[in-house]
């Protein structure tokens, strides 16, 4: 009897332990599933609130340049244009510098120097956006206004991009600050992609008599190509959604101008400026519709970037 009772209690304990195990799995499952739910929630909220404006203006919403809350007229084009233009300018500056720096840190620099510099790049990535904006207002804007833009105008002024009045704030300044903010991303992810290239690839090239640069450029870079493109996409997604620093230097003018010196506007900036004080449901809905566009843009670009980065890191492993 005693032994049977003991074995029963042992089974009971085993059973409760198993149930505990199952409960633990379920609890973590719920929270992991919560992440899916949050993402679905984001889509639902954006969809729900943007429908009013999208229904009223239809496709015209994306082609109209007229943004006038007072007369309930909302056209998204100046913001879409400003967002794409500033991000394009940012990549134009950040890609060569960022990939160059990544090559230096991963391949060419002495290891000790490289690890210190990499740490500093990571710190740079941690600086909050609003602080970039604060500094830009008081340093970059006057510098662009008084030095860079006049110089560009006097040398390349025959091009339409470099004509017109100089304000200091505008597309170009926003592009520069975005470039500064995207470097750290491009650098650190490109660097990881380069480091994931197997050592044997470098050695094979060197053993054929290639110089360090030849081995890097001919062999390592093609190996890491996808990861580097992924890092650029990630930088692009970041630039598209970047809000504070851009809001502080773009000039906040909802119109499309050829000149890069002209003040403009971006999607994120107009949401930041107008959302809290939106004048009515239609205005709110138009702002949410803009954010929906921004969401879709960054999702597509991020999704592609993640796939590319996953592909390279798997190959390296």
């Amino acid at each position: 009897m005693a032994s049977s009772a003991k074995s029963t209690s042992f089974t009971a304990v085993r059973k409760s332990v198993q149930m505990g195990d199952e409960a633990a799995r379920l609890v973590t499952l719920v929270f992991a599933g919560g992440i899916l739910l949050i993402t679905l929630l984001v889509v639902a909220v954006l969809w729900d609130h943007s429908s009013l404006a999208l229904y009223k203006f239809g496709f015209h919403f994306f082609t109209s340049q007229n943004w006038d809350p007072n007369s309930d007229e909302f056209g998204a084009l100046p913001f879409v244009y400003g967002t794409l233009m500033t991000s394009f300018l940012a990549l134009l500056i950040a890609v060569p510098l960022g990939v160059g720096a990544a090559i230096f840190l991963a391949e060419l620099a002495p290891p000790k120097i490289s690890s210190i510099l990499t740490f500093l790049v990571e710190l740079l990535a941690a600086v909050p956006s609003v602080i970039y904006g604060l500094l830009a207002i008081f340093t970059l804007v006057p510098f662009m206004r008084d030095t860079v833009e006049p110089a560009l105008q006097s040398t390349l002024g025959f091009l339409p991009f470099f004509q017109g009045q100089i304000f200091g704030v505008g597309y170009l300044t926003a592009g520069v600050i975005l470039a500064i903010m995207t470097f750290p991303f491009i650098i650190s992810i490109s660097r990881e992609a380069l480091l994931a290239v197997p050592r044997e690839q470098r050695e094979a090239a060197l053993a054929l008599g290639a110089t360090q640069w030849e081995s890097t450029f001919d062999i390592v870079l093609p190996n890491a190509r996808l990861g580097i493109i992924g890092s650029i996409f990630l930088g692009l997604a970041r630039a598209l959604g970047e809000t504070m620093a851009v809001t502080m230097v773009i000039g906040n003018d909802p119109s499309i101008k050829a000149s890069l010196f002209a003040p403009g506007y971006t999607i994120a900036a107009v949401i930041a400026n107008e959302f809290a004080e939106a004048s009515g449901n239609l205005h709110l809905s138009a702002l949410v519709a803009l954010s929906f566009v921004l969401f879709l843009l960054t999702m597509v670009i991020n999704g592609a970037a993640r796939l590319m980065i996953m592909a390279t890191s798997r190959k390296g492993a």
Binding site: P198, E200, A204, A205, L208, P222
Partner: peptide, 10 residues
């Protein structure tokens, strides 16, 4: 010249 343990075609 050198040939490595693991084949390492580019």
């Amino acid at each position: 010249g050198m040939v490595f343990q693991k084949s390492n075609p580019f």
